[in-house]
Nucleic acid binder design. Structure first.
Lengths: 177, 177
DNA sequence: TCCGTTATGTCAGCCTTATTGACATATCTC
DNA sequence: GAGATATGTCAATAAGGCTGACATAACGGA
């Protein structure tokens, strides 16, 4: 299991796990920064080969995970403007990684689906990140997994948690209604 | 304590905590995305008032945490080019949030220090993020804290962990050598 | 059927944050 | 004194975001 520096244990023991107002949580803030910095850096090389960036990755990821996703749902997940989304989405469609189909019940909607090529790339990218995650979980000890997931989930805006929970844990694909 | 959806418990029970190659770790990947998305969004409003962006936040944060930081060290932490750093750093200096002093032993170095104003802003921004972190840790249960920290630490590139550990847990300020 | 609303697309312009490449200056070290 | 190092700077470019305005098609209720 991962060994943390002595100073870590001290801080941990001193402040305990209570949420006393003992100043900023520098350690958590910084570890989140560094963890995320390295986490998103993995896919970069592959993405470069296709002329894609991180924005494309995010779009492809969620379309792959929720086939039939609408533009509006995607905008809500990514929290960007439709103009920004449209640029990267257009490129993903042009290069054959994502397909659009008109909604069945509501034909104004454009439902987004990954192509075979799109699924492949999405899974390859997720694979890279999974390597890091898996190694980290192994490193952090068996009991860390649930705790880490609970922590990450609790970091999300309360209003959004139901929505996120549905995205993350419902395998049910978003099918044209 | 935070209640996770039924599906979470099922996945958790099914896959256990072993690192069997059971496909991409979609849940961890996505929770990291959502947690970080909301985590960095908190300071945005305040930053806007000063005409600053997230890049300024990162620079100010680490200078405040490591007074006497050199340009080279900052570049290594942020993983950006010196040109990118210089733009935001210049603005932070011009607006009186950061001061530069020549190194004592090596006068080529520019040591970076926060001003009183700089410390205030850095602490205010960290305070916002600490609120979220504290609430999340409380939500996730007392035993989650150490596990979450171990997980985040283990997500960092192995080569970088010693360096990060020094930054995060050594309270010793980086003093002009 | 008509009308207001909704889902999406698009044009134009702008900002922030990053990049590469080239070159300059001061200082350190041998 | 010579080469390496720490930093600064100019110029051009790209990626990814933004606001605002306007267009189109389809939905849905009166």
């Amino acid at each position: 299991m991962a060994t943390l520096p002595q100073a870590f244990a001290e801080t941990s023991a001193t402040t305990g796990s209570d949420a006393t107002d003992s100043g900023p949580a520098w350690d958590v803030i910084e570890l989140l920064f560094f963890a995320y910095r390295d986490f998103v850096s993995d896919p970069d090389r592959i993405l470069g080969d296709y002329g894609f960036g991180r924005a494309h990755h995010r779009v492809l990821h969620f379309v792959n995970r929720q086939p039939g996703l609408t533009i509006a749902e995607l905008l809500d997940i990514l929290r960007i403007t439709k103009q920004s989304l449209n640029r990267v989405l257009k490129e993903l469609v042009e290069k054959g990684f994502i397909e659009q189909r008109a909604g069945v019940a509501d034909r104004r909607q454009r439902l987004l689906f990954p192509t075979a090529k799109g699924r492949e790339l999405a899974v390859a990218l997720a694979g890279l990140q999974t390597e890091r995650v898996t190694r980290a979980l192994a490193d952090a000890g068996p009991e860390a997994r649930d705790a880490a997931l609970r922590f990450l989930f609790a970091m999300i805006d309360p209003d959004d948690r139901t929505h996120v929970a549905r995205l993350v844990w419902n395998d049910a694909t978003t099918v044209p209604r």
